[in-house]
């Protein structure tokens, strides 16, 4: 955009909702869903500051789930904060792991809700600090390496990272992403047959994966 328009648009960035909007919407969501949303003492700095849904979930499931989701949401938050630094009007080559469109929300209203209706939310339901998940950190580091390597066209580097992840975390939580990157790296390396075979296994292992389109695109790119 021309500079004055860019400046104009920046005025709209980081805008906050009017006072009271958040509370009104929170109450509305709680009423509609029959749940209680934990109100943090102060707005958390990141999406995964640890506030937990004060529902009637099994404690164990909640804690395990919080650990998994909190850690990964933090990752997503970090990642999502990256693009602004690189404002680009051109397609970058770093598209091994683009955002895949979510299925748009259904218009129909389901009436079956997860068991909830917590009659008495705990007095301070928030702050179960997300457990430090070192395994996930390590996984993410390796998968990130593979992603960056692939983004700069270094198929060999990407495959090396993929193999390392496979050895250390064969059943890891990021196995799905790893396999999608593996397909991309093989395709890029000119190993079309292996890429196709791996893509087959990927589709069988994760039908309906959000990485599906990425894998398909990689296969289509094979000459």
């Amino acid at each position: 955009m021309k500079d004055d328009l860019a400046e104009l648009l920046s005025s709209e960035r980081g805008r906050a909702a009017p006072a009271g909007s958040r509370d009104r919407a929170r109450s509305g969501v709680e009423r509609t869903l029959g749940i209680a949303i934990a109100v943090p003492g102060a707005p958390p700095p990141a999406p995964a500051a640890g506030s937990a849904l004060a529902g009637g979930f099994a404690a164990k499931a909640a804690i395990v789930g919080a650990a998994i989701v909190a850690a990964t949401v933090v990752a997503a938050a970090f990642r999502s904060s990256e693009p602004p630094a690189v404002r680009s009007d051109r397609p970058t080559t770093s598209t091994p792991v683009p955002v895949v469109a979510p299925p748009l929300p259904q218009a129909t209203v389901r009436t079956t809700l997860p068991a909830s209706a917590a009659p008495a939310p705990a007095p301070r339901p928030r702050t179960v600090p997300p457990a430090r998940d070192t395994d996930l950190d390590a996984e993410r580091a390796i998968v990130g390496e593979a992603r960056s390597a692939l983004a700069r066209g270094d198929a060999a580097g990407a495959l090396a990272a993929v193999s390392r992840h496979e050895r250390q975390f064969a059943r890891g939580r990021l196995a799905e992403e790893r396999e999608s990157l593996a397909v991309g790296a093989l395709a890029r390396a000119g190993r079309g047959e292996e890429a196709r075979a791996r893509a087959e296994r990927f589709r069988a292992g994760w039908p309906g994966s959000l990485y599906g389109p990425v894998v398909d695109a990689a296969i289509r790119s094979i000459p």
Binding site: V29, I37, A49, S51, I68
Partner: peptide, 17 residues
């Protein structure tokens, strides 16, 4: 685990409202 336990919904709400 996810369908029964969306423990980060509150965090999503607060962070993105």
């Amino acid at each position: 685990l996810q369908p029964v336990s969306p423990p980060d919904f509150a965090a999503v709400f607060e962070a993105h409202f």
